[in-house]
Design a protein around this nucleic acid. Structure first.
Length: 542
RNA sequence: GCGCCCGUAGCUCAACCGGACAGAGCAUCAGCCUUCUAAGCUGAGGGUUAGUGGUUCGAGUCCACUCGGGCGUACCA
């Protein structure tokens, strides 16, 4: 629809030169009375042309060569809006495309041939994933889905570090619990990992090795067993949500493969770093950032910034066209440094897109739960998934705008799981499936012949919404905004439920029956496709 | 102190580059099942978009300041 309007205006611009000077946009008005699309061009032009917007609008409209099979009405309204109304027949043309493309409808080739990498979750294996990680996990996977829908070939990647201080403490935490099992009276420091899972890992080690590990280095079997066990659990938690990373990248490889040293060298060669007080500093101020930062401590140990930069270079070297990082808001401060650094090393930081999501505030029994893996104060993602189900978890996290802080009331989520909007959407899909089954039993065949019979308000409303799907997918993908899809799918479901109460499919005149059956099949396909992007199932029965 | 994000109905949240009377869901109240799934539909009430000022044809959206919340601001990750 939009394309048609653009071509109309382009043609008119050959006579109206002033149209070339502005950026044309077509908006979908909030109120249907204002048409399917509207243009605000007259108001933008008014100042320069020193002419009343409504007069400009008349001039433009007079120059538009519209096809009455496509546009049914053009109105000049308000202060100078031009409103366009499309014909139902034109709107219904899309239905045959939907039926034909089926599960592929909505996919586009806008970015085909391009490679993207989405890095998300990336929690170190020190404990189970929490509800807090859930948002990152679900949104990251959905964004990856969206990119695939617009043509990208996407790698999902998980970056982790099993070498740092956190992991040392983890290994030692396990050893202390192990020694407890052996009967030693251990002091267990406050800043050690308090979780029950530590005891379970220690128990496993005890069952396997008995008391032979009394003198084992905490960073040996204890740490490696903990890492394995925890990673197993993390992967399992993700798999429960249908999230599967293709690549797990260990920060440690950056060291063993010499990437860290190489990076230090290139900074030095390019005079992007200097030594001060025994540490190596990166000249971030010269790169336009706020302050220089240490990349190698005086102890000789790199700070986290260095591997972060090295890791991005590794990814850039893999020739992706787009790198997406999904971070929680606690990373807000670090990525500008990474971008500045890779830029100054001659890489295109424009390929890197950083998505920051705000934190989830978990509320349980009316109180805010302060999540801490260390203190074992958390609600695990698994508990949530078991409680409310995969579909609800995925839907819920995708319902919210990424940079809005969200409250997650666990009690509400559990008790209200029946009223979650996901059921509303799935119910529409199940209802349609049921009608289609029944139509088959009654030998009613769908037909593309009589779509012109679809003319009631509720039928046209459905057609209009169906016509927006492709654009929504593209917008959601380019803006990395999964929330658009949940909003869309709800709008479509709502329109269907309304239609269902006013229009019968079975038991009306044969041609109309066939046309409506085709219409709802198209609705079913688009609902299923939208849900598939979200990673939510589309049941045939409920 | 400084930087980023946020503040919208009782609650949880929408509102694409600034656009027409700010929208949903839940909750509350009142209706709708002899016919395709009532996990549904219809209607009602509920708002000074935290506040003040500014920019312009037009501001929830942009700018400045104030108030309130989150996250940063490490030779922690």
């Amino acid at each position: 629809m939009k394309n048609y309007l653009h071509s109309l205006f382009a043609e008119a611009a050959t006579r109206l030169d002033y149209l070339n000077g502005i950026k044309l946009t077509f908006d979908i008005p909030k109120s249907p009375e204002h048409g399917d699309y509207s243009s605000n061009a007259p108001m933008i032009l008014a100042k320069n042309l020193k002419k009343a917007p409504r007069l400009i609008a008349q001039d433009i409209v007079a120059n538009l060569k519209t096809d009455s099979h496509i546009i049914s009405k053009i109105e000049i309204a308000g202060n100078g809006f031009i409103n366009f109304f499309f014909t139902p027949l034109f709107l219904s043309k899309l239905v045959s495309e939907i039926i034909e493309k089926n599960g592929d409808f909505g996919k586009s080739t806008s970015y085909s041939g391009k490679k993207a990498n989405v890095e998300f979750v990336s929690a170190n294996p020190t404990g189970p994933l929490t509800v807090g990680h859930g948002r990152n996990a679900v949104c990251g996977d959905t964004i990856a889905n969206l990119l695939e829908w617009v043509g990208y070939s996407v790698d999902r990647e998980y970056y982790f570090n099993n070498a740092g201080r956190q992991m040392r403490v983890l290994g030692d935490s396990v050893k202390k619990r192990y020694l407890e099992i052996l009967g030693d009276n251990m002091e267990f420091p406050d800043d050690y990992y308090q979780g029950q899972y530590i005891n379970l890992i220690a128990q496993k080690i005890y069952e396997k090795y008995g008391d032979t590990l009394r003198d084992e280095d905490p960073e040996g079997i204890f740490k490696s067993t903990a890492e394995q066990e925890i990673f197993l659990e993390i992967k399992n938690s993700l798999a429960n949500l249908d999230i599967n990373h293709k690549i797990f990248y260990n920060e440690n490889d950056l060291y063993t493969e010499g990437k860290i040293q190489a990076l230090i060298n290139s900074f030095e060669e390019k005079s992007l770093s200097y030594k001060k007080e025994g540490a190596v500093w990166l000249k971030l101020t010269e790169m336009g950032n706020e302050a220089d930062k240490v990349i190698v401590k005086s102890t000789g140990e790199p700070t986290y910034r260095l591997p972060d930069i090295a890791y991005h270079i590794v990814k850039l070297d893999r020739a992706y066209d787009l790198l997406i990082d999904i971070f929680g808001s606690d990373h807000t401060a670090t990525y500008p440094d990474v971008l500045a650094a890779i830029n100054n090393l001659g890489y295109d930081s424009g390929k890197v897109k950083v998505i920051i999501h705000q934190f989830v505030t978990v509320i349980k029994d009316g109180e805010i739960v302060k999540m801490s893996t260390r203190k074992a104060n958390y609600i695990t993602l698994d508990e949530l998934t078991e409680e409310v189900g995969k579909d609800a978890v995925r839907y819920f996290f995708n319902m919210r705008n990424l940079n809005s802080h969200m409250n997650f009331d666990l009690n509400l989520a559990k008790e209200k799981s029946e009223e979650n909007p996901v059921f509303y959407v799935q119910y529409a899909h199940a209802r349609i499936s049921s009608i289609i089954r029944m139509a088959q039993d009654n030998n009613i065949a769908p037909s593309l012949q009589d779509l012109g019979l679809l003319s009631s308000e509720d039928e046209i409303r459905l057609l209009k919404i169906l016509n927006l799907f492709k654009e929504e997918v593209l917008l959601a993908a380019t803006n990395c905004d999964p929330q658009r899809i949940t909003a869309y799918v709800e709008e479509l479901a709502k329109a269907f439920h309304k239609f269902y109460t006013t229009c019968r499919i079975i038991g009306v005149e044969k041609n109309l029956s066939s046309a409506r059956l085709t219409l709802i099949n198209a609705v079913r396909i688009v609902l299923a496709n939208g849900l598939s992007i979200l990673g939510v199932s589309a049941p045939d029965k409920m």
